[in-house]
Design a protein around this nucleic acid. Structure first.
Lengths: 261, 261
DNA sequence: GCGTGTGAAGAAATTCACAGCC
DNA sequence: GGCTGTGAATTTCTTCACACGC
């Protein structure tokens, strides 16, 4: 079967990364996966795009479009086979194989991360903990001993680390990132409130709690009656009609990223 | 009533809320704020959009476009006054007033969040901690006693809570969210790995560690030589050195570095 | 009929490129 | 000359709406 790839030379509306699957879609696949897992646990054999979209908190049209990038795994007039679709998405994300993770920085957050069950439950194994503070060396966190950050290179090489989680103070983050990259780690999850500069080809995801709070604060202020829009500016006559969608409720899924940005 | 589409013609060509400022821009303002604070600390009086963009890890054209939504705070031929721009952005985000935060769920993550300095340093005051586990009641975390989650409504009302942080297990998150909303909280930061359904007008930001890891895993897999792209497809587009170790990867300014050819 | 898959339309976000001001 | 601010062009993402297979 010659797969009818969308090799469409009609370079119209198609940007796609390397071989397809836009970033926005990739960011939602884990959501669908989780929703499917929930459905599977409730012994639901099949589901419509409407069902799954509701469970994932997205629009059904978007869900179908997203899934169409993976292939045709649904049946017209019926829906999707929960178990099969779950497997296909897990496969696409690459969860069929476990990946080793090292956590660098074991302050409050780092320790919480090391203990976070969500890591282990989805094929991510925390195999080493590193910190610069000698007082933490050897102490047990999540069944692992904390080792000196000086051993970073050894750890990455000997334990086949694929992902590095940075939970250090901002001042140490770039240095740690540089060393992780030099040691061969090409995937970094950064919790330090700083911008990381990395070479081409290295993927960095950032989680910044204070930024999330500030975004909330912005909307909070906007809701306030006293808000007139920034300092000056006559502002528009726009009304705050948030366009009630009739449903009265608004589903907030995962997303961003940040968000966005 | 025929189920015809709602007359969306009401919206002009801009998703913008009240007075402008697209969501993507809002999500970056905190980034600029942080960069400006760093510049201020190094006693830099003014900076160009190039400088600031580099410090924030974005493209300079995007930075200028973003700032243009706030007003004209720069000087052509010169740049931006660091202190003034910092104030303008802080004002726009609404950081001129403190906001009270309640943390619900004090497991590993919740405790780490309660202790997180980043919260307090930017005008967010954690004023109460709630949990359902009696064993935690009264124990001190970050100088506050943990109180029964049953007191949620009291706490929100008496302490003027503006933001709720949910760090409970997924199973409890929706219930907590419902109660927060009913109590008048319209801004929620959700760490529980579940989709929250909230009424229109309530803002939810979500932080999901396992989703971030899965996104990294996807790219990790894509880099892998054995990756052929889902079910079918050629794929091999990589010309990046996948070879073990060796300084295969070239440092190319970084995915964020501006560079305008 | 139902519901997927998808081209086309629409909206949003990003980047370009340059006019205009210092 | 240098740099901001911004319309226009471009790219990316989302939604619509309907043909097609069940």
């Amino acid at each position: 079967m010659r797969g009818w790839r969308r090799d469409t030379l009609t370079a119209r509306t198609q940007a796609e990364s390397p071989r397809g699957i836009p970033e926005a879609t990739v960011a939602r696949l884990p959501l669908y996966l989780r929703a499917l897992t929930a459905l599977a646990e409730s012994a639901t054999p099949t589901c419509s795009s409407e069902d799954l979209a509701a469970a994932a908190g997205v629009n059904s049209a978007m869900l179908r479009k997203d899934l169409s990038h993976l292939g045709s795994y649904g049946t017209r007039g019926v829906g999707y086979d929960v178990e099969n679709l779950r497997y296909q998405i897990a496969h696409e994300i690459g969860l069929t194989q476990d990946r080793n993770v090292v956590v660098v920085g074991l302050g409050n957050l780092g320790q919480a991360l090391a203990n976070y069950a969500g890591f282990r439950s989805r094929g991510f194994r925390v195999v080493a903990l590193l910190d610069a503070d000698p007082r933490l060396f050897g102490t047990g966190v999540a069944g692992l001993g904390v080792r000196p950050v000086a051993e970073l290179e050894d750890v990455v090489a000997s334990l086949d680390v694929a992902i590095g989680v940075i939970a250090t103070p901002a001042s140490a983050a770039q240095d740690v990132a540089d060393r992780l990259v030099a040691a061969g780690v090409a995937s970094i999850l950064n919790f330090a409130p700083t911008v990381l500069v990395v070479p081409e080809g290295v993927e960095v995801r950032k989680v910044d709690l204070s930024i999330e709070l500030q975004i909330l604060a912005f909307h909070e202020q906007r809701r306030s009656p006293s808000y007139v829009g920034g300092a000056t500016g006559a502002g528009g006559h726009d009304h705050d009609v948030v366009g009630t969608d009739g449903h009265g409720r608004r589903v907030v899924a995962a997303g961003h990223g940040e968000e966005s940005r």
